[in-house]
């Protein structure tokens, strides 16, 4: 699971959970995979990304170095920072671990890089 995906996932499909974001991350195994750098995609996606959550998640899995605390206006010219963001967003992957609902503490296991978001009967809306 990429951290970009983590940044988009919520647990608000559980009955009674209103926001469900950001999900906590417990990472037991992390890998970095090569993904082609696409500046316009990174810039476009950053407008949707919750930056604090991304930075926090990257730090939690040990790849937060060099990420700015806040996103400046001059990002477009700053390829170095953009590449670091690209790395955190798309190249770092949690292979084994779990996601934790911030409201209920419900755990969603991640195995083989795939988070299991299936619910039980009593959790359905």
């Amino acid at each position: 699971m990429k951290l970009l995906t983590h940044n988009m996932l919520t647990s608000n499909i559980i009955k009674g959970v209103s926001n469900g974001f950001p999900l906590g991350i417990v990472a037991n195994k992390v890998e970095v995979k090569d993904v082609d750098f696409n500046q316009s995609f990174v810039l476009k996606t950053l407008s949707k990304v919750d930056w604090n959550a991304l930075r926090q998640a990257a730090t939690q899995v040990g790849h937060g170095d060099g990420l700015p605390e806040e996103l400046g206006e001059d990002l477009k010219e700053n390829d170095d920072v953009l590449k670091k963001i690209h790395n955190a967003m798309l190249q770092v992957e949690v292979v084994e671990g779990e996601l934790v609902c911030p409201e209920t503490g419900r755990k969603f296991p991640i195995s083989n890089g795939i988070p299991n978001m299936l619910l039980l009967e009593h959790e359905l809306q």
Binding site: L4, T5, N7, M8, L118
Partner: peptide, 21 residues
């Protein structure tokens, strides 16, 4: 995963709702 697809994968049931922002 074995085929090393580029996209990210999630195990989920569409009938339970889509867990995204």
């Amino acid at each position: 995963v074995e085929r090393e697809v580029e996209g990210d994968l999630i195990l989920g049931d569409m009938g339970y709702g889509l867990p995204f922002r």
